[in-house]
Design a protein around this nucleic acid. Structure first.
Lengths: 196, 196
DNA sequence: CCTACCGATCGGTAGG
DNA sequence: CCTACCGATCGGTAGG
Protein backbone atom coordinates (compact mmCIF):
# COMPACT_ATOMS: atom_id res chain seq x y z
CA UNK A 1 0.00 0.00 0.00
CA UNK A 2 1.44 3.31 -1.11
CA UNK A 3 2.20 5.75 1.64
CA UNK A 4 2.07 9.45 1.18
CA UNK A 5 5.14 10.28 3.21
CA UNK A 6 6.43 13.33 1.46
CA UNK A 7 3.17 14.60 0.08
CA UNK A 8 3.77 18.23 -0.75
CA UNK A 9 2.97 20.34 2.26
CA UNK A 10 -0.39 18.76 2.96
CA UNK A 11 -2.20 20.34 5.82
CA UNK A 12 -2.59 17.12 7.79
CA UNK A 13 1.09 16.46 7.85
CA UNK A 14 1.85 19.99 8.98
CA UNK A 15 -0.68 19.74 11.75
CA UNK A 16 0.85 16.49 12.96
CA UNK A 17 4.33 17.99 13.02
CA UNK A 18 3.12 21.11 14.77
CA UNK A 19 1.27 19.19 17.44
CA UNK A 20 4.21 16.87 17.94
CA UNK A 21 6.36 19.89 18.76
CA UNK A 22 3.96 20.82 21.52
CA UNK A 23 3.93 17.27 22.85
CA UNK A 24 7.71 16.85 22.70
CA UNK A 25 8.19 20.17 24.43
CA UNK A 26 5.83 19.23 27.23
CA UNK A 27 7.03 15.67 27.83
CA UNK A 28 10.35 15.33 26.08
CA UNK A 29 10.89 13.47 22.83
CA UNK A 30 11.90 10.16 24.35
CA UNK A 31 8.98 10.15 26.75
CA UNK A 32 6.35 11.02 24.18
CA UNK A 33 4.51 8.22 22.44
CA UNK A 34 2.89 8.12 19.05
CA UNK A 35 -0.28 7.00 20.77
CA UNK A 36 -0.37 10.18 22.82
CA UNK A 37 0.19 12.24 19.72
CA UNK A 38 -2.59 10.38 17.94
CA UNK A 39 -4.95 11.03 20.81
CA UNK A 40 -4.16 14.75 20.69
CA UNK A 41 -5.17 14.67 17.05
CA UNK A 42 -8.26 12.57 17.56
CA UNK A 43 -7.13 9.57 15.54
CA UNK A 44 -5.66 6.13 16.18
CA UNK A 45 -1.88 5.78 16.21
CA UNK A 46 -1.55 3.77 12.98
CA UNK A 47 -3.33 6.50 11.07
CA UNK A 48 -0.42 8.84 11.65
CA UNK A 49 1.75 6.69 9.44
CA UNK A 50 -0.27 7.66 6.39
CA UNK A 51 1.18 11.14 6.73
CA UNK A 52 4.59 10.72 8.29
CA UNK A 53 7.37 8.18 8.09
CA UNK A 54 7.81 7.71 11.79
CA UNK A 55 8.54 9.32 15.11
CA UNK A 56 12.07 10.24 14.13
CA UNK A 57 10.86 12.15 11.12
CA UNK A 58 8.84 14.47 13.33
CA UNK A 59 11.89 15.44 15.36
CA UNK A 60 13.89 15.81 12.20
CA UNK A 61 11.39 18.21 10.66
CA UNK A 62 11.28 20.33 13.80
CA UNK A 63 15.03 20.61 14.22
CA UNK A 64 15.74 21.16 10.54
CA UNK A 65 13.23 23.96 10.31
CA UNK A 66 14.57 25.77 13.34
CA UNK A 67 18.17 25.46 12.19
CA UNK A 68 17.21 26.80 8.79
CA UNK A 69 15.51 29.83 10.26
CA UNK A 70 18.55 30.74 12.33
CA UNK A 71 20.94 30.26 9.45
CA UNK A 72 18.78 32.34 7.15
CA UNK A 73 18.70 35.14 9.67
CA UNK A 74 22.46 34.97 10.05
CA UNK A 75 22.89 35.37 6.31
CA UNK A 76 20.52 38.29 6.25
CA UNK A 77 22.33 40.04 9.08
CA UNK A 78 25.69 39.44 7.47
CA UNK A 79 24.44 40.80 4.17
CA UNK A 80 23.99 44.19 5.82
CA UNK A 81 26.73 46.69 6.59
CA UNK A 82 25.98 47.21 10.26
CA UNK A 83 28.68 47.37 12.92
CA UNK A 84 29.61 44.27 14.87
CA UNK A 85 27.73 45.34 17.95
CA UNK A 86 24.66 46.18 15.89
CA UNK A 87 24.81 42.77 14.24
CA UNK A 88 25.13 41.06 17.58
CA UNK A 89 22.25 43.03 18.98
CA UNK A 90 20.15 42.10 15.99
CA UNK A 91 20.97 38.42 16.38
CA UNK A 92 20.15 38.46 20.08
CA UNK A 93 16.81 40.06 19.32
CA UNK A 94 16.10 37.42 16.73
CA UNK A 95 16.79 34.65 19.22
CA UNK A 96 14.39 36.27 21.65
CA UNK A 97 11.79 36.63 18.93
CA UNK A 98 12.15 32.99 17.91
CA UNK A 99 11.75 31.90 21.51
CA UNK A 100 8.53 33.87 21.76
CA UNK A 101 7.03 33.03 18.39
CA UNK A 102 8.18 29.44 17.93
CA UNK A 103 8.60 28.35 21.49
CA UNK A 104 7.78 24.66 21.12
CA UNK A 105 9.98 24.15 18.10
CA UNK A 106 12.96 26.01 19.51
CA UNK A 107 12.63 24.26 22.83
CA UNK A 108 12.51 20.82 21.23
CA UNK A 109 15.39 21.67 18.93
CA UNK A 110 17.45 22.82 21.91
CA UNK A 111 16.66 19.84 24.09
CA UNK A 112 16.19 16.81 21.87
CA UNK A 113 18.43 17.29 18.85
CA UNK A 114 20.64 14.52 20.17
CA UNK A 115 17.93 11.97 19.42
CA UNK A 116 18.11 12.83 15.73
CA UNK A 117 18.89 9.87 13.51
CA UNK A 118 21.79 9.95 11.15
CA UNK A 119 22.44 11.56 8.78
CA UNK A 120 20.28 14.32 10.21
CA UNK A 121 22.23 14.49 13.44
CA UNK A 122 25.47 15.13 11.61
CA UNK A 123 23.79 17.68 9.40
CA UNK A 124 22.27 19.47 12.35
CA UNK A 125 25.58 19.67 14.18
CA UNK A 126 27.32 20.89 11.05
CA UNK A 127 24.79 23.65 10.58
CA UNK A 128 25.14 24.69 14.17
CA UNK A 129 28.88 24.82 13.84
CA UNK A 130 28.55 27.04 10.81
CA UNK A 131 26.21 29.33 12.66
CA UNK A 132 28.55 29.63 15.61
CA UNK A 133 31.49 30.16 13.29
CA UNK A 134 29.80 33.12 11.67
CA UNK A 135 28.86 34.51 15.05
CA UNK A 136 32.47 34.21 16.18
CA UNK A 137 33.62 35.94 12.99
CA UNK A 138 31.36 38.90 13.74
CA UNK A 139 32.85 39.23 17.19
CA UNK A 140 36.37 38.86 15.88
CA UNK A 141 35.68 41.60 13.41
CA UNK A 142 34.44 43.85 16.19
CA UNK A 143 37.56 43.22 18.23
CA UNK A 144 39.83 44.01 15.31
CA UNK A 145 37.97 47.23 14.60
CA UNK A 146 38.25 48.22 18.24
CA UNK A 147 34.50 48.12 18.67
CA UNK A 148 34.49 45.23 21.13
CA UNK A 149 36.62 44.22 24.08
CA UNK A 150 39.32 41.69 23.50
CA UNK A 151 37.45 38.75 25.02
CA UNK A 152 37.73 35.20 23.74
CA UNK A 153 35.17 35.19 20.90
CA UNK A 154 34.27 31.55 21.41
CA UNK A 155 33.36 32.21 25.03
CA UNK A 156 31.44 35.33 24.09
CA UNK A 157 29.30 33.36 21.65
CA UNK A 158 28.81 30.60 24.20
CA UNK A 159 27.70 33.17 26.75
CA UNK A 160 25.30 34.91 24.41
CA UNK A 161 23.72 31.80 22.93
CA UNK A 162 23.33 30.17 26.32
CA UNK A 163 21.81 33.28 27.80
CA UNK A 164 19.14 33.61 25.15
CA UNK A 165 18.35 29.96 25.48
CA UNK A 166 17.48 30.66 29.09
CA UNK A 167 14.39 32.40 27.79
CA UNK A 168 12.81 28.99 27.71
CA UNK A 169 12.47 29.36 31.43
CA UNK A 170 11.08 32.85 31.17
CA UNK A 171 8.08 31.62 29.20
CA UNK A 172 6.51 30.63 32.50
CA UNK A 173 6.86 34.18 33.80
CA UNK A 174 5.50 35.88 30.73
CA UNK A 175 2.83 37.67 32.72
CA UNK A 176 5.28 38.98 35.31
CA UNK A 177 7.61 40.72 32.91
CA UNK A 178 6.72 42.01 29.45
CA UNK A 179 8.72 40.80 26.47
CA UNK A 180 10.00 44.19 25.49
CA UNK A 181 11.42 44.90 28.95
CA UNK A 182 13.10 41.53 29.06
CA UNK A 183 14.56 42.05 25.62
CA UNK A 184 16.03 45.42 26.49
CA UNK A 185 17.46 44.20 29.78
CA UNK A 186 19.09 41.12 28.30
CA UNK A 187 20.53 42.90 25.29
CA UNK A 188 21.86 45.61 27.56
CA UNK A 189 23.36 43.12 29.99
CA UNK A 190 25.07 41.04 27.32
CA UNK A 191 26.45 44.06 25.50
CA UNK A 192 27.24 46.48 28.31
CA UNK A 193 27.53 44.35 31.42
CA UNK A 194 26.04 44.50 34.85
CA UNK A 195 28.52 46.65 36.72
CA UNK A 196 28.05 50.39 36.64
CA UNK B 1 12.63 -10.45 51.38
CA UNK B 2 14.09 -7.43 53.12
CA UNK B 3 15.59 -4.84 50.85
CA UNK B 4 18.43 -2.62 51.88
CA UNK B 5 17.16 0.50 50.20
CA UNK B 6 18.49 3.19 52.46
CA UNK B 7 21.49 1.36 53.85
CA UNK B 8 23.76 4.02 55.28
CA UNK B 9 26.04 5.23 52.54
CA UNK B 10 27.09 1.82 51.35
CA UNK B 11 29.67 1.93 48.64
CA UNK B 12 27.65 -0.13 46.19
CA UNK B 13 24.72 2.19 46.31
CA UNK B 14 26.95 5.21 45.77
CA UNK B 15 28.61 3.57 42.82
CA UNK B 16 25.26 2.81 41.24
CA UNK B 17 24.09 6.38 41.64
CA UNK B 18 27.34 7.74 40.30
CA UNK B 19 27.31 5.53 37.24
CA UNK B 20 23.67 6.30 36.60
CA UNK B 21 24.57 9.99 36.40
CA UNK B 22 27.04 9.19 33.65
CA UNK B 23 24.50 7.09 31.80
CA UNK B 24 21.69 9.62 32.12
CA UNK B 25 23.98 12.38 30.94
CA UNK B 26 25.03 10.43 27.89
CA UNK B 27 21.61 9.13 26.84
CA UNK B 28 19.04 11.14 28.76
CA UNK B 29 17.06 9.85 31.72
CA UNK B 30 14.02 8.70 29.77
CA UNK B 31 16.10 6.87 27.20
CA UNK B 32 18.32 5.08 29.69
CA UNK B 33 17.31 1.62 30.87
CA UNK B 34 18.06 -0.15 34.09
CA UNK B 35 19.44 -3.00 32.02
CA UNK B 36 22.02 -0.70 30.48
CA UNK B 37 22.97 0.57 33.88
CA UNK B 38 23.30 -2.97 35.18
CA UNK B 39 25.54 -3.87 32.27
CA UNK B 40 27.79 -0.91 33.02
CA UNK B 41 28.14 -2.25 36.53
CA UNK B 42 28.64 -5.86 35.49
CA UNK B 43 25.51 -7.25 37.10
CA UNK B 44 22.02 -8.27 36.04
CA UNK B 45 19.26 -5.67 36.22
CA UNK B 46 17.31 -7.20 39.13
CA UNK B 47 20.41 -7.06 41.31
CA UNK B 48 20.27 -3.28 41.28
CA UNK B 49 17.07 -3.38 43.28
CA UNK B 50 18.91 -4.72 46.30
CA UNK B 51 20.59 -1.34 46.59
CA UNK B 52 18.14 1.19 45.22
CA UNK B 53 14.39 1.59 45.22
CA UNK B 54 14.00 2.17 41.53
CA UNK B 55 14.98 4.26 38.54
CA UNK B 56 13.25 7.33 39.89
CA UNK B 57 15.28 7.23 43.06
CA UNK B 58 18.49 7.54 41.09
CA UNK B 59 17.37 10.75 39.44
CA UNK B 60 16.10 12.02 42.74
CA UNK B 61 19.44 11.46 44.45
CA UNK B 62 21.32 13.21 41.68
CA UNK B 63 19.10 16.27 41.55
CA UNK B 64 18.78 16.60 45.30
CA UNK B 65 22.52 16.49 45.80
CA UNK B 66 23.20 19.13 43.17
CA UNK B 67 20.51 21.45 44.49
CA UNK B 68 21.93 21.09 47.98
CA UNK B 69 25.42 21.99 46.86
CA UNK B 70 24.25 25.17 45.16
CA UNK B 71 22.12 26.21 48.09
CA UNK B 72 24.94 25.60 50.53
CA UNK B 73 27.27 27.71 48.46
CA UNK B 74 24.70 30.49 48.30
CA UNK B 75 24.47 30.51 52.08
CA UNK B 76 28.21 30.60 52.41
CA UNK B 77 28.53 33.49 50.00
CA UNK B 78 25.76 35.39 51.72
CA UNK B 79 27.38 34.85 55.10
CA UNK B 80 30.33 36.93 53.95
CA UNK B 81 30.45 40.70 53.75
CA UNK B 82 31.60 41.02 50.16
CA UNK B 83 30.13 43.54 47.75
CA UNK B 84 27.32 42.55 45.41
CA UNK B 85 29.57 42.29 42.41
CA UNK B 86 32.09 40.22 44.37
CA UNK B 87 29.31 37.88 45.48
CA UNK B 88 28.04 37.54 41.96
CA UNK B 89 31.51 36.85 40.67
CA UNK B 90 31.98 34.22 43.35
CA UNK B 91 28.71 32.52 42.45
CA UNK B 92 29.53 32.49 38.76
CA UNK B 93 32.87 30.91 39.51
CA UNK B 94 31.18 28.27 41.64
CA UNK B 95 28.82 27.39 38.81
CA UNK B 96 31.77 26.99 36.51
CA UNK B 97 33.57 24.87 39.06
CA UNK B 98 30.52 22.64 39.54
CA UNK B 99 30.23 22.18 35.82
CA UNK B 100 33.84 21.07 35.65
CA UNK B 101 33.97 18.89 38.75
CA UNK B 102 30.47 17.38 38.74
CA UNK B 103 29.64 17.52 35.09
CA UNK B 104 27.39 14.47 34.86
CA UNK B 105 25.32 15.33 37.91
CA UNK B 106 24.88 18.99 37.00
CA UNK B 107 24.01 18.11 33.44
CA UNK B 108 21.41 15.56 34.49
CA UNK B 109 19.99 17.93 37.08
CA UNK B 110 19.69 20.66 34.46
CA UNK B 111 18.13 18.46 31.81
CA UNK B 112 16.03 15.84 33.50
CA UNK B 113 14.70 17.37 36.71
CA UNK B 114 11.26 17.43 35.15
CA UNK B 115 11.07 13.65 35.32
CA UNK B 116 11.35 13.79 39.09
CA UNK B 117 8.45 12.13 40.91
CA UNK B 118 6.45 14.01 43.46
CA UNK B 119 7.08 15.17 46.06
CA UNK B 120 10.66 15.55 44.91
CA UNK B 121 9.73 17.59 41.89
CA UNK B 122 7.95 20.17 44.01
CA UNK B 123 10.81 20.23 46.46
CA UNK B 124 13.36 20.68 43.72
CA UNK B 125 11.46 23.57 42.17
CA UNK B 126 11.01 25.19 45.55
CA UNK B 127 14.72 25.00 46.24
CA UNK B 128 15.51 26.48 42.88
CA UNK B 129 13.11 29.31 43.48
CA UNK B 130 14.79 30.05 46.80
CA UNK B 131 18.19 30.05 45.14
CA UNK B 132 17.07 32.43 42.43
CA UNK B 133 15.38 34.63 44.99
CA UNK B 134 18.60 35.02 46.91
CA UNK B 135 20.49 35.74 43.72
CA UNK B 136 17.97 38.42 42.81
CA UNK B 137 18.31 39.91 46.28
CA UNK B 138 22.04 40.24 45.84
CA UNK B 139 21.56 42.10 42.59
CA UNK B 140 18.89 44.30 44.06
CA UNK B 141 21.22 45.18 46.86
CA UNK B 142 23.92 46.10 44.38
CA UNK B 143 21.55 48.36 42.47
CA UNK B 144 20.44 50.12 45.63
CA UNK B 145 24.03 50.69 46.68
CA UNK B 146 24.86 52.10 43.27
CA UNK B 147 27.26 49.26 42.56
CA UNK B 148 25.25 47.77 39.70
CA UNK B 149 23.31 49.17 36.79
CA UNK B 150 19.58 49.46 37.17
CA UNK B 151 18.70 46.40 35.10
CA UNK B 152 15.78 44.14 35.85
CA UNK B 153 17.26 41.79 38.48
CA UNK B 154 15.17 38.84 37.37
CA UNK B 155 16.48 39.11 33.85
CA UNK B 156 20.04 39.53 35.10
CA UNK B 157 19.81 36.31 37.07
CA UNK B 158 18.21 34.54 34.11
CA UNK B 159 21.04 35.74 31.89
CA UNK B 160 23.77 34.70 34.31
CA UNK B 161 22.38 31.30 35.20
CA UNK B 162 21.65 30.46 31.58
CA UNK B 163 25.09 31.54 30.48
CA UNK B 164 26.92 29.36 32.97
CA UNK B 165 24.69 26.45 32.05
CA UNK B 166 26.04 26.79 28.55
CA UNK B 167 29.30 25.41 29.86
CA UNK B 168 27.77 22.01 29.33
CA UNK B 169 28.51 22.54 25.71
CA UNK B 170 32.02 23.72 26.37
CA UNK B 171 32.95 20.38 27.95
CA UNK B 172 33.47 19.06 24.45
CA UNK B 173 35.98 21.80 23.71
CA UNK B 174 37.95 21.42 26.91
CA UNK B 175 41.16 20.87 25.06
CA UNK B 176 40.72 23.94 22.85
CA UNK B 177 40.33 26.44 25.62
CA UNK B 178 41.66 26.11 29.16
CA UNK B 179 39.21 26.38 32.06
CA UNK B 180 40.87 29.39 33.59
CA UNK B 181 40.70 31.41 30.39
CA UNK B 182 37.06 30.51 29.90
CA UNK B 183 36.26 31.43 33.45
CA UNK B 184 37.89 34.84 33.18
CA UNK B 185 36.26 35.62 29.87
CA UNK B 186 32.77 34.63 30.97
CA UNK B 187 32.97 36.41 34.32
CA UNK B 188 34.26 39.49 32.57
CA UNK B 189 31.57 39.37 29.89
CA UNK B 190 28.71 38.92 32.34
CA UNK B 191 29.95 41.63 34.68
CA UNK B 192 31.44 44.20 32.32
CA UNK B 193 29.87 43.50 28.98
CA UNK B 194 31.19 43.00 25.51
CA UNK B 195 31.31 46.52 24.14
CA UNK B 196 34.41 48.56 24.77
C1' DC C 1 23.92 -11.96 43.54
C1' DC C 2 21.14 -14.87 40.08
C1' DT C 3 17.16 -17.03 36.86
C1' DA C 4 12.68 -16.76 35.50
C1' DC C 5 9.13 -14.10 34.55
C1' DC C 6 5.11 -10.46 34.65
C1' DG C 7 2.11 -6.85 32.78
C1' DA C 8 2.51 -2.62 30.36
C1' DT C 9 3.85 -0.08 26.68
C1' DC C 10 6.48 0.99 22.80
C1' DG C 11 7.06 2.01 17.38
C1' DG C 12 5.39 0.23 13.61
C1' DT C 13 3.02 -3.10 9.92
C1' DA C 14 -0.70 -5.77 7.48
C1' DG C 15 -4.64 -5.40 5.38
C1' DG C 16 -8.71 -3.39 4.16
C1' DC D 1 -9.19 6.36 8.42
C1' DC D 2 -9.77 1.85 11.16
C1' DT D 3 -8.98 -3.02 13.71
C1' DA D 4 -5.91 -6.43 14.77
C1' DC D 5 -1.65 -7.50 15.86
C1' DC D 6 3.74 -8.12 16.05
C1' DG D 7 8.29 -8.33 18.26
C1' DA D 8 11.03 -5.66 21.31
C1' DT D 9 11.77 -3.56 25.42
C1' DC D 10 10.59 -1.50 29.58
C1' DG D 11 10.60 -1.22 35.14
C1' DG D 12 10.10 -4.20 38.46
C1' DT D 13 8.91 -8.69 41.42
C1' DA D 14 9.20 -13.58 43.14
C1' DG D 15 11.92 -16.61 45.01
C1' DG D 16 16.01 -18.57 46.21
Amino acid sequence: MAKIISAGNGTKRDVIISRSAGLFRAKGYASSSMRELAELLGVEAPSLYNHIGGKGELLQQICTKVALQFNNQMEEVNAGAASSSAKIESLIRFHIWMMMEHYDEVYVSNHDWRYLNEPYLAKFLAQRKIYEGKFIAIINDGIIKGDLKNLNPFVAVLTILSAVRGLEFWQRHKKDIPAVELEEAMVNHLLNGLIK
